[in-house]
Design a protein around this nucleic acid. Sequence first.
DNA 1: TAGGCCATCTGGTCCT
DNA 2: AGGACCAGATGGCCTA
Length: 157
Amino acid sequence: MDVELPGRLVDSALINFVNDMSLIEFPQKFTLGPKQQGDNTTPSPSNQGDSSWSRSLENDVRTVELRTELLAMGPQRYYSRGAHGHATSRRRRIITVVQRHAANVRERKRMFSLNEAFDELRRKVPTFAYEKRLSRIETLRLAIVYISFMTDLLENT
DNA sequence: TAGGCCATCTGGTCCT
DNA sequence: AGGACCAGATGGCCTA
C-alpha cells in the first residue's frame, strides 16, 4: 500500500514514517465525519453549507443592521473597553462603527488566507487517503515531524 | 453531554 | 491614522 501524496505515490520508507507518527495513536479520529470529510478544499460559499460562510453572512447582516441602526442615531463611535474588559486604557483608540465593521472584514480575509495556507500545507504532508481532514494543530505537528524525517533522510544518504 | 475544533468579533499593540 | 497581527472570548457544530 502506498501513501497518496499530491500528484504522486510514495514508497515504503514514507509509509513507515507515517506509521510511526504519533498521529497513528488515535486512529479513531481518522474516520470520516459529515463536517470535515472528503474535500480538502478551501471553504467557500458553495461547499460550506450552513456553517461558517452562512454564519458569516448572518453576522454581516446583523452587523449591517446594527450599523444602520446606530448610524440613524448619529455619529456613533466604538469606545475601547481595554484589554480583558478594563474600562481604562492608556492609549484608548476610538473608532466608528464603520471602521469596526471594516476591521472585521479585514480580519476575516486575513483568517481566510491563513486557512488557505493551512490547506496548502495539508496537501504537502503525507496522509492516508481515508484519513479525515487534519486539524490545524495536527497539520503543524505533522509538518514538523515530516520535515525532520526528510532532513534525516537527506543526511543519511 | 463534554471536549475538540473552528469562525468570528473585538480590542490592544506594533508598524508604516 | 489606519492596517496588520495577535490573543481572548464566544458560540456553533461534530464526535465519542
